[in-house]
């Protein structure tokens, strides 16, 4: 397991697949070989209303609704990641896929919000020591949200030791939308060894950003093009 960085690729005009194709072309110039497909999905459960008083913040009179996020990654197909999110604290549990079957038994405490399901899927590339995954993020309703690029540098597990090479690689095909500063998540763990759960926590951060972003209109759809074929979509 190397160091993983997630980067949102700006798509202000919501070209969708056209932008993804652009990235595919650029990365092909770096010698990238397509190597299958990937998918990361995230489902969110909320603590039931009648139980939320249990989480009263002492003295504030307000209640906190805890969120339980369930994530899956095709890179680790036998695992489920459960992230419990409460103010100021996040606990990430790495569990066997059977954890999913346990969730219906917790329905007296946590209920899924189906319309909040979000996923990213796309093509996975390998470029020497890097794995690049260019994904298109969409809600369960099919609503397109943006482009998310994951880059993993396999040769190193500590961000502090490989950020410069990661930054250079990211900028080489995404340009200057990549900040020269490491993302806050990595900055907070700059000297620590990274694991698969760090990747999932970064995905959750990005998914939350995408869910909250309502700056773009929700209309528009992209024709279903397969990788390698010419996109016929038009900007929405």
């Amino acid at each position: 397991m190397g160091v993983t960085v997630l980067q949102t690729f700006p798509d202000a005009f919501r070209y969708g697949y056209k932008e993804v194709e652009k990235l595919h072309t650029r990365i092909a110039h770096l010698g990238a070989q397509p190597n299958g497909v990937f998918q990361v999905d995230c489902d969110t459960y909320y603590m039931n209303q009648q139980n939320s008083q249990f989480n009263d913040i002492p003295g504030s009179g307000s209640t906190v609704n805890k969120k339980l996020h369930i994530l899956h990654n095709t890179e680790t197909p036998a695992s489920t990641y459960a992230i419990i999110e409460s103010p100021g604290k996040q606990v990430t549990l790495c569990a066997d896929l059977m954890f999913d079957l346990l969730l219906p038994r917790l329905s007296h405490m946590y209920t899924a919000k189906k319309n909040l399901k979000v996923e990213t899927k796309g093509t996975r590339f390998t470029v020497s020591d890097f794995i690049v995954k260019i994904g298109s993020v969409s809600m369960s309703s099919g609503q397109y949200k943006g482009i998310l690029v994951e880059v993993e540098y396999l040769a190193c597990s500590v961000p502090a030791l490989c950020w410069p090479i990661l930054r250079e690689f990211l900028q080489s095909f995404m340009g200057f939308c990549v900040s020269s500063q490491p993302p806050p998540y990595l900055q907070a763990r700059f000297q620590q060894v990274q694991g698969p759960q760090d990747t999932m926590q970064q995905y959750l951060e990005k998914f939350n950003e995408f869910r909250e972003s309502s700056a773009y209109p929700v209309t528009g759809s992209l024709s279903a093009s397969q990788p390698g074929t010419t996109s016929t979509s038009t900007p929405s």
Binding site: Y17, V37, Q39, D41, N73, T74, T123, Q143, Y144, S225
Partner: peptide, 10 residues
């Protein structure tokens, strides 16, 4: 604007 990729989800 979703892309139809045949990914078998976990």
């Amino acid at each position: 604007m979703s892309i139809n990729l045949s990914v078998q989800s976990v």
